[in-house]
Every structure is written in C-alpha cells, then in structure tokens.
Amino acid sequence: MTVLAVKSLSKSFGGVRAVRDVSFTVAAGELLAMIGPNGAGKTTCFNMVNGQIAPDAGSVEFEGRSLARLAPRQIWRLGVGRTFQITATFGSMTVRENVQMALLSHHRRLFSFFSLSKDQFVKDAEALLDRVGMRDQAGRACSLLAYGDLKRVELAVALANRPRLLLMDEPTAGMAPEERDELMRLAAELARDSRIAVLFTEHDMDVVFTHADRIIVLAEGELIAEGAPAEVRANARVREVYLGAGAGHA
C-alpha cells in the first residue's frame, strides 16, 4: 500500500534548479533511502516533503491527501513523524517529559491549565522509551544526554502519535559507526513491526545498503536511479556519479 506519493516535484532558488521533476513512492513498512552526492538536492527534496519548503511544481500526497500548503504541525497531525539531522529536543526537560509533550500534543491536552503535566500519559511514554531502549534514562535531563541517546529520544518522540510515515533526515549523522548500525536496526525493526513507511536521507553508505529496502539516487536535482540496494549498487550511472567517470570497474 502506498503511503507517500511524490509526483514531479521541482524547486528553484534564484534561477538554480535545486530539484527537477522528482517522483517516487514509499509503501507501508518499507524503508526508502534517498541518497546522492553533496548538492544533489536531497535536503531540498526532503524539506518539500515535510512542509518546510513550498515546491514550485509537483505534488506530495500522504495516504492520497495533498500536503501542499500545510504547516509542519498540521502534517504531523495527519500521522507523519520526523527526526532532525541535528537533534531537536526540549533541553530543559527530562527524557520522559520530552515524550510526554508529544503525547500531550497528540491528545490535544496542551491548553490544560489545571492538571499536572508529570502525571499525564506516563505509561505510554515509558512504553515508547522502552521500545527505543531509553527507559532507564527516563528521568535524566535531555541536555545531559549523549548524542546517540538523544537520537533515540527523538525516535521515541517521533513515534508518539503512531505515525504511518516517518521522515528521518540524516538519522545517524554525528554518531559513532557502531551506534549508527544499532540505531538504524532499531528504526527498521520499529517500522516493520508497526508497518510504518520510512523515508530517510543518509550519507553513510554502509547504513543505507544494510538497512534500506529500496534506494533512490539524486544527482544535480534529478532522480537518476531507483531500486533495491543490489540494483542500485550495480547501476552504472550511480557509480559514475559517486566514483567519477571511468571508475566503473573500480
């Protein structure tokens, strides 16, 4: 079942065409990696999907519904979770409170003045933290966490509204190699268990080829290849873009 359908997306910045006519889909339970060399338009493309940038042309549909002109917070309400390249968490709160915030927002309890925040959705929050292996650190302040742990917290926060689509921008950036594999394995497992469609961008090719079900490759704003890891690995165009012309046999 197609969860995300991107059709003919284009965007220019002051005459420079950052993204040109890009189309792809992501199905439920599938991990799609978007890769490409620096300047290929990955970030632009990604930010058009999550609503931070408005496309010049083309459409982004989530479960058949257009996401055009929706703010990030509205997109989230439809069931789209996200994590950031540089983690964005609430530094003055504990790990548990970070997850509770997402749950409070999901249950539309933000304008409650009289209940105590700390008593809200404790069990749900702990269950989510359990899934990402952060339950034992639930009471620690987010500002004191190691970077890898922050990434896990973000994942738990992103899962709080039971998303059907998860957008992960460079999920393993800034992490040690062994942590990267662990985090992506976790993400993949969660996605398959809950049938979540995942779109992620990534620099680390090991991570991409180990964990992605399918890969799309961008170069100079255009989609140049698409397919299973083995197909993409064998694709001549991709080898040329990544390794340079004439390196086809390297």
């Binding site: 968490t89 003055s92 999901h106 003045f113 925040s117």
Partner: peptide
C-alpha cells in the same frame, strides 16, 4: 500544567515543538 510545559517546549526548540503538532 501541560500548558506551562508547552510554553517551555516552544522556547526550548520551536522546530521540535512545530514538528509535534
């Protein structure tokens, strides 16, 4: 209360606050 926490959340990270609706 949740409202007080939400205010601090919006201060700590507007990006994240927006991304959780």
């Amino acid at each position: 209360s949740p409202f007080g926490y939400a205010l601090r959340a919006a201060r700590d990270s507007p990006l994240r606050a927006d991304a959780i609706g």
